[in-house]
Amino acid sequence: MKAWGSLIAWAGIMLLLTGCWSQMELTERAFVLALAIDKGDKDVLHVTSQIYKSASQFVAPSNQSQASAFVNITLDGSSVSEIVRDTKTVSGRHSQFSHIQIILISEEVARERLSSILDFFFRDPEIRLGTPIMITKGKARDYLTGRPMIENTVGSQVFKQLDFSHYLAGRTINTTILDLAFQLKSESESAMLPVIVTEPEYKQDVVQGIVLAKPDKMVGRIAPDKAAYLLLLANEYHYGILDIPCGRESKLSETLEVVQANSKITPMLRGDTVSARIDVNIKASIGELVCTTIRNMADEDRYAKKAERHFKEQMESVVSTIQKKKTDVLGIGHKLYLRHPSRWKKLKPEWPERYARMPIEINVKVDIMNSKMMNPRPFSRIGED
C-alpha cells in the first residue's frame, strides 16, 4: 500500500509540472533570422530584421513555392534595443531571436560605435552567443535583399557562405559574439571579424577578407589575398588552396592544397625587451604544377623550400600591417600576460607602441604529402623554377 501511495503522489506532482514555459503561441512570434545595422543621420541607426515567413496551411503548394520565405522590416532609432522593441508595431508579433543566424554591421557603423552596438547582443538572453558577426562593405541591409542563391532565405545564404569561406576556403574568419567578447576583453584588446563585399563585375556577394577591430571601433582591413596568411599565423586555418607564383615577372602560379596547418606563438621577455617567435607547420599536397617539374625527392625538397620562402614573405607582410595598425590580433600581449602577470602591469600602458615596433620572427615548415604521385606526365611540361 505504501508503494501505491508513493506512486500516486509522484504522479500528482508530475501532473503539476507539465505545461508550456510561456503563454505566447507560435503564431504570436516573429522568428528573426538575420539583423543588419546601418548608420543614419547623426546618432540614428537603421536596423533591418529579416523575419521568417512560415507557409500557411490554407495556401496551395504551388503558390507556396513562389512566395518569399522571409520579409524584411527596417526601422530607425537611437539604439538597437529601442528599434527591436518597435518592430512589434510593424510585424504585429513578438521578435524572437533564438534562431538568429547572422548579424551584419556596416563598415560605417563599425568605424564609429562598435562597442555600443555589441552591448545589446551580449546582454539579450534570447540571442545565442554563438551567433556570427560580420562587417559589410556598403549598406548592411543591401545584403539581406534580393533572392537567395540556394538557401530559402538570404540570411541563411550569408551564414552558409561565411561557414564555408572560413573552414573550406581559408578566405576569412568566423567570429561569434562570444569570440568577439573574449578577444576585445583580453589583454590584447584586438579582434578579427569577417567581411562581405559585392563584386561589381559579377554582382555577387562574396565573403572574404578580415577586419581588424579595437574595443571601440574598426581600425583596418586585411585584403582577401592576405587573409589566409593571417589565419595561418593565428592558428585558425583549416583547409584551402594557397598560390605559389612561378616568378616575379610571370603571372602564372602553382597551387598547394593545405590539408593541415598549425602554429605556435611564443612571446619572449628579456629585461625590458619584448619579442616573439611564430612557428607555422603546413602539411599540403600539390594541386597544380605549371612551371615546375618534380621527378625525385630532391626536386620535392627544393619545391617545399620555395613554398616556405613565399609563405614567409606573405606572413611578414601581414605582420607588418597589423603592427602598423597596432592591433594585436594574434594575442601576443595576452600570452605575455599569462606568462609574466606581474611584469605585464608595467608593460600594458604602453603595449600598443611596444607591439608596433617589437621584432617578430616567423619560421615556416612545409611538408608535401603526395610525393608518390609526382609523375610529370602526361600533362606537365618540363620546366625550371
Rank of each mutant, 00 (worst) to 15 (best):
A234K: 10
I37A: 02
E151D: 11
I51Y: 11
T131Y: 04
G146N: 05
A60K: 15
D86Q: 09
Q183F: 04
I332T: 03
F122R: 15
S106G: 04
A307G: 08
S79H: 07
S165A: 15
P352R: 12
T136Y: 06
E313V: 11
E257M: 04
G220N: 05
I8Q: 03
M149I: 14
T255R: 08
G220A: 12
P267C: 08
D76W: 08
F379C: 00
D38H: 11
Y239C: 02
K226P: 04
R339W: 13
I362H: 07
V44Y: 00
V366A: 03
A67R: 15
T255N: 11
W344V: 03
I244V: 12
P224G: 00
S275N: 07
S285G: 15
I222K: 04
T48W: 05
A356G: 04
I117E: 05
R354Y: 09
L338W: 00
A356K: 12
T293M: 02
I265K: 09
Q260E: 14
W344C: 10
K139P: 07
M297K: 15
L336G: 00
K226W: 06
G138L: 07
L232I: 04
D216S: 02
L256A: 09
T176F: 04
M369S: 05
E257C: 09
T292W: 05
R123S: 02
S263P: 08
I103N: 05
I100E: 09
R343H: 08
S263G: 04
S98L: 07
G77P: 05
S68F: 11
T87V: 14
T255Q: 10
G170P: 02
N63W: 13
S98N: 10
E151M: 03
S56C: 07
V211H: 00
